[in-house]
Design a protein around this nucleic acid. Structure first.
Lengths: 342, 342
DNA sequence: TGAGGGAAGTGAATCGTTTCATTCCCTGAC
DNA sequence: GTCAGGGAATGAAACGATTCACTTCCCTCA
């Protein structure tokens, strides 16, 4: 059915080895032979069979990327960064979504292993490291993304989330807030735990109070739910600032607590609050939609694309056997906007 | 280096054929042989080589999906729908981003062809059909997504965008607006052209006026730019309603034109307007962030996940040689929220 | 004149899985 | 006791690109 190198070789009157050379090392073949082979390829509509190529090569030209949540624009950006850097090296990226579940993560890693991927980039679900070790033991280069590996055996690219949490909290303190709530969860997600820890440290040092409001996931919907919970309280019992573990939560919170423009507090405000007047709000990640919120959201920016592209760089370094920069850590950056009075 | 069926066979004291049978048709093998082989697989850490498998099978278990813009949550949902349906059949989905560019689309289609993908789902860049025909001629099942194929030769899943445009415009008319602006572009994108056409028809029939405000892309940033343009005009010259070609544009518009809550028109409003009071706004797609906007955005909902899963269904039908439902068309649905006074 | 060498091209072996025609062995029927 | 039938297992062939040791051919230079 399909046209193979054999057919092309016959058509062009050369051997299969020569066709392969034309494809991979044209400089080793005389110009007119190249032309003749190329003409045959064109005429027959030959398309290389990647499976055969990979079988011979022993590995594929694809990088597997496992993220916690594809719906989060932060990860979309990471993926874009990885993809464009990979493309520069003739590699492609396959994106998989673990939804923070062990079994989904394992399933995708199994798939990647069967595919003998070039390497794997993974934002690991908490404590699934044994599975990753097996991966590496099978000779598949692995880089942890958005997680600093304590274990020295994995390369990693991360952002200092403790520092990010500290920055966010200090900003809220600097605008005079003292009754601060952290909204996020589950805390088994390392990013959440670190941001909380950073905030706690900063607030503790300033004699502020930090309240923890847990969520089941880092989504807009959960943010809305948390917001409704805050509104249900007596106004004097509400925090005067909220630090959300990511922007999705923050946007949900914003939607549910903020007073609508033009509406009087009495009318349909129904206990809604002014932002940042009554409650200042800051998120994390600085996704595109953060600045698009009508009350533009303050946030802690992570260099998402850079994280993705750097992860690919590390993979290539491991690949080339160079001593890789084992742990790259980026610093987060405060972005002040309307939701904290900027 | 790597463990192959050969090694497993030797270890378990059986032939390679038997190992393969254990892997693929365990019911054909006696229970204790299955157990023995499984034990060897476990002990040796054998992992199937997918490339060899594909080479033999002639095709892969991967579906290629080419979308116009991965950053648009609408397409993320389509991808999720496709992925979950594909997973039910043991297939995976590789998502590629054409960014509405011919060459990027072609590059990815080439890649998919080399990979002998199981099938291709594509939201085609305008008029790149010849490339798709070649794909199909090479025996790769192809389904057009979010585009109704005029050419009967492709199966397709689409939403009636003309109808969607009509619905949006009629809604704006029904709340008394007559000076309506359509913001979107480039019109070479079929979705944009259709939505515009639908709006035009409805507004023409009602003696309203439709103004076209072009954009270079369907992004938040372009929406903001369009919004600034509207604000720069004399208030009497502004439209009283805006229909944005998608939600990203609408969110950008909202951000740039809406009066901030609590601020007087004079103070920092700087010519900003009330939404929906001065300008009603409706978007398209009904992405998650639409309802999260502080003035919740009215929109025209498309069943994104359903589009994705249906596309995979069509692919499977073509695959099985069944006469496929060649053109599936879903109807869009109006979702009224605060930005049009809901 | 002939050795040496380089450029061009050859084709068999290889990667690892699946398939399928074939063999082997056992049971049950006549 | 023999034979048909069937369950279980076998192993060689096939998939298609790449590689590499080897052959040809031709040119140069001593």
């Amino acid at each position: 059915m399909a046209i193979s190198v054999r057919d092309v070789a016959d058509d062009a009157g050369v051997s299969v080895g020569t066709v392969s050379n034309v494809l991979n090392r044209p400089e080793k073949v005389s110009p007119d032979t190249v032309a003749r082979v190329l003409a045959s390829i064109e005429r027959l509509g030959f398309v290389r069979n990647d499976a055969a190529r990979q079988l011979r090569a022993g590995r594929s030209r694809t990088i597997g990327l496992v993220v916690l949540d594809v719906r989060n624009p932060f990860f979309t950006e990471v993926a874009r960064g990885a993809e464009s850097r990979a493309a520069e090296h003739g590699l492609s990226v396959l994106v998989a979504n673990s939804d923070d579940k062990h079994d989904r993560e394992s399933t995708y890693l199994d798939l990647f292993e069967e595919q003998r991927v070039f390497g794997v980039l993974v934002t690991p679900v908490s404590e699934n490291l044994p599975r990753l070790m097996r991966m590496r033991d099978h000779g598949i280069p692995t880089v942890l993304v958005d997680r600093e590996s304590h274990d020295a055996s994995f390369a990693s690219v991360a952002v200092d989330d403790v520092e990010g949490g500290r920055i966010a909290a200090e900003h809220l303190l600097s605008i005079g807030r003292r009754r601060i709530a952290f909204v996020g969860g589950p805390v088994t997600i390392r990013q959440v735990a670190d941001r909380l820890a950073g905030a706690q440290a900063a607030i503790g040092a300033a004699d502020g109070r930090l309240e923890f409001i847990g969520t089941d996931a880092l989504t807009v919907e959960e943010g809305r739910r948390a917001g409704r919970g805050i509104l249900a309280r007596d106004p004097r019992d509400r925090p005067d600032a909220v630090f959300a573990a990511n922007d999705l939560l923050a946007l949900g919170l914003l939607q549910s607590i903020v007073m609508l423009p033009g509406s009087s507090t009495a009318a349909d405000g129904r206990g809604r609050v002014r932002v940042p007047g009554d409650i200042a709000l800051i998120g994390y990640d600085d996704i595109d939609f953060a600045s698009s919120a009508v009350i533009p959201l303050s946030s802690v920016r992570q260099p998402a694309e850079l994280i993705g592209s750097t992860a690919v760089d590390l993979l290539l370094e491991i690949e080339r056997g160079e001593r890789p920069r084992e742990h790259v850590v980026f610093q987060p950056e405060l972005v002040v906007r309307g939701s904290t009075g900027g």
